[in-house]
Structures are given as structure tokens and as C-alpha cells.
């Protein structure tokens, strides 16, 4: 299967060191018609997220009397990958939408919004690995930009094992040829995990080590999220 080596002289195919994140860009309020929005890029991987709400929820039977609900849609644009992805939801995006909802849910004071919905949409415009974690970072910023009361931000990154080396922030090629990859999200202030998915084959020790590097990377991403939020509101 593998045509080329993913690690050469301790460096990755894009020149990064194992623990190095790609160039990360974050921008707020890119969708003016939404209550809050953000664009996040991890290298070429680009996610645009928007948040609508709190808003009325219809049909009425979906309403919950004691709490508000969070709805999330993760979607890949057909042109975001080399072989066109046929549009519309599939099994993968259904599952990812669910785990993203569970990753963000704990931060939002949903009980303050009975019968109400908060809707988050994440569109992957270009995909080069680690799309779900990029979407989570964008949605977290979009929620904050929409002024939704939150306990914490959510920072997210991928980690994995390529050519026997543990690395952070896998790009598309690394993702496709990895021995294992893990999607991870945490609430940085609370210090708890809200997304954890892994597939591959790892020893227990490797799993614990990857969790540690994921935590460290998420703290870096969190700093960037804070900075972009502060800069944006300073400018207003």
C-alpha cells in the first residue's frame, strides 16, 4: 500500500517535526448573516463554521421543555477532496456530526435556553486531513463570536502514529497511511476530554503518550483562539 516513507531523517513529508502543528490561521465573523462564525485553517485544511441562534425550534415536538438543544452539521464540499465527494449526508458525516455535538455540548449552558435551539454548521472547503478537529476549533470560535454563554472554549487536534513515530496534526497523506490516528478535543480550563476517537493499533503506553501530546497541542491552539477573539473585540 505504502508508496513512500512518511518520516525521513526525523522529519515529515511537509518538513515538520513530529510534535509540530501546521501553520494555523483563524478568522472571525466571515459569515455576516450568522450570529457568529469563524474560518480555521490547519495548513490546507479549511473549515468555515457558523452559529445561528439561540433561535426558536420547529417543529415543536423537537423542543425540550427543560433545556435547549444543540444541533450540529458537519459537511464536506464535493470539491474539497481529490475524487469528488457526492453531496449530502453519508454515514461518516452523520457520525462526525454527532461526535462534534458531544464535543461542544458540555461547554454550553443549554439549560438556560428551554425549548430553544443553537445550530452550528461546519463546511469543509478544502480537506487535507484532520477535518473534524478543524471544524471543532472553528465551531468553538463561532459559538464564542455568537455570544453564546459558554463555560470554556473547546480546542481540538489530531494525533497519530506514522512510520513508527508519534506525531501531532496529521495531514491528508499521513492520515491515509497512518498506523493509528486519534481525534481529540478538550476543554482547556476544565482540563477534561470531550472528544476521543482512535483507530489503528497502539499499545496502552502509546495511547497515553498520544493523549499527552494532544493535550499540549490543544493548549497551543487554545492560546491562538483566545488571541483571535481578543484581537477581534479590541478592534471593534
Amino acid at each position: 500500500m505504502k508508496e513512500e516513507k512518511l518520516m525521513v531523517d526525523g522529519k515529515r513529508i511537509d518538513g515538520r517535526l513530529p510534535e509540530q502543528l501546521r501553520d494555523i490561521k483563524m478568522k472571525l465573523n466571515v459569515v455576516t448573516r450568522a450570529n457568529g462564525s469563524a474560518e480555521v485553517k490547519f495548513g490546507k485544511t479549511t473549515a468555515i463554521a457558523s452559529v445561528h441562534g439561540p433561535r426558536a425550534l420547529f417543529p415543536r415536538y423537537l423542543q425540550e421543555s427543560g433545556t435547549g438543544i444543540l444541533r450540529i452539521r458537519y459537511n464536506m464540499a464535493p470539491f474539497s477532496v481529490n475524487d469528488r465527494k457526492s453531496p449530502g449526508p453519508d454515514r461518516r458525516s452523520t457520525e462526525i456530526s454527532k461526535v462534534i455535538r458531544l464535543a461542544l455540548g458540555p461547554t454550553i449552558f443549554l439549560e438556560d435556553f428551554p425549548k430553544i435551539t443553537i445550530d452550528g454548521f461546519a463546511e469543509i472547503i478544502e480537506a487535507d486531513g484532520s477535518t473534524r478537529v478543524t471544524a471543532i476549533n472553528a465551531l468553538s470560535l463561532a459559538l464564542a463570536a455568537a455570544g453564546i454563554p459558554m463555560e470554556d472554549l473547546v480546542a481540538s487536534c489530531s494525533v497519530g502514529k506514522i512510520d513508527g513515530t508519534l506525531v501531532v496534526d496529521l495531514n491528508g497523506k499521513e492520515d491515509n497511511n497512518s498506523e493509528a490516528d486519534m481525534a481529540f478535543a478538550m476543554l482547556p480550563n476544565k482540563g477534561v476530554i470531550s472528544l476521543l476517537q482512535m483507530d489503528g493499533a497502539l499499545t496502552k503506553k502509546e495511547v497515553l503518550k498520544l493523549l499527552q501530546s494532544a493535550k499540549e497541542s490543544c493548549m497551543k491552539i487554545y492560546e491562538m483562539q483566545i488571541k483571535v477573539l481578543k484581537d477581534f473585540y479590541k478592534g471593534e
Partner: peptide
């Protein structure tokens, strides 16, 4: 070897719980 992980449920998991769960 651990081949797949998936956190489920609405609440978060603590770092210190993972090793015991594994």
C-alpha cells in the same frame, strides 16, 4: 493492542480515568 476508541455519552472524561478504563 488498542484498535479503536470512541468516547460516547454527553459528559467529558478526565485524563486520569483513561488508563484505568484501558
Amino acid at each position: 493492542k488498542i484498535c479503536a476508541l470512541q468516547k460516547q455519552g454527553v459528559n467529558e472524561i478526565k485524563f486520569e480515568d483513561i488508563e484505568r478504563m484501558l
